[in-house]
């Protein structure tokens, strides 16, 4: 396959950045998108040029590190697929592909296609955990959990924190991410104890980081590689409202 790549190049956070066009003439259709970029980079290195910086880690779709907006869609628009699991057979020979980083104020560009997602870590640090000493592994079924609750919690726990929801949202809202984390912990008995405190703290940190607000367009859900549902945002709205009212009236 022959491809024309329009790639965002930016030296550092202070650089204005811009697009540079590259020709990739030797692309195998069975390569993943990141492997294709590796080949392009090998060519650049051989020419003595700076390779394109992009994030990657597990390359099997479970770590949430890759962060490419491909032709205007985070992770490239294949259903439930991260960029590393996206294969070149989904593109046509001779196609022009535009590759950009996540664009959101809380995700500043570090270099080229690499963005700083510390804002997500700060949200997790503010409440995305269960503060209990766990000791050894408990016996299976020692704590009864309903099938419905465990299914919903597992659906939410699928979130890998890649930030595609923020990248796809026209408002750069992080609500799908926050809602997944709040629901995943709040639905289970171990996490329920701190449910109110958690949702208040995580929403506060999300707002302070400068993310936008949900306008229910559904773009986040559509691009999410783990298919996190908009239902969780509604659940987040509900949990936050109950937490606000309970804490305002001093209810436990």
């Amino acid at each position: 396959m022959k491809l024309t790549l329009k790639i965002w190049r930016q030296k550092n956070g202070n650089d204005a950045g811009g697009f540079v066009t590259y020709q990739a003439n030797d692309v195998n259709k069975d390569m993943s998108f990141l492997e294709m970029l590796d080949v392009v980079n090998e060519g650049l290195i051989a020419e003595g040029k700076d390779p394109v910086a992009f994030d990657s880690d597990c390359r099997e779709g479970i770590c949430g590190t890759c962060s490419l907006v491909i032709n205007g869609v985070p992770h490239g628009g294949q259903k439930a697929t991260t960029a590393c699991q996206l294969h070149m057979r989904h593109f046509q020979d001779g196609q022009t592909i535009t590759i950009e980083p996540w664009r959101a104020r809380p995700f500043p560009v570090v270099r080229d296609l690499v963005v700083d997602r510390d804002a997500f870590d700060k949200i997790i640090q503010s409440g995305g955990f269960v503060s209990a000493s766990t000791g050894g592994t408990p016996d299976a079924n020692a704590i009864p959990i309903s099938k419905d609750a465990s299914d919903a919690a597992m659906d939410a726990a699928q979130c890998i924190g890649c930030g595609a929801c923020v990248a796809a949202c026209k408002n750069a809202s992080a609500m799908l991410f926050v809602s997944a984390k709040v629901s995943h912990l709040g639905l289970l008995p171990q996490g329920k104890v701190e449910k109110d405190r958690r949702v208040l703290a995580m929403v506060k940190t999300m707002d302070e980081a400068g993310f936008g607000n949900c306008t229910v367009t559904g773009a986040c859900e559509a691009v999410c590689p783990k298919e996190i549902s908009l239902d969780f945002i509604s659940r987040l709205n509900r949990d936050y409202a109950t937490a606000v009212f309970k804490s305002a009236w001093g209810a436990k």
């Binding site: 535009t98 950009e100 664009r103 104020r105 750069a172 936008g212 773009a219």
Partner: peptide
């Protein structure tokens, strides 16, 4: 707040499923 959260636009804008 929404506009402040996305200071730089995307080169290619695909609205996907949004209405």
């Amino acid at each position: 707040e929404n506009r402040a959260a996305r200071p730089s636009r995307y080169e290619v804008n695909d609205p996907t499923v949004t209405t």
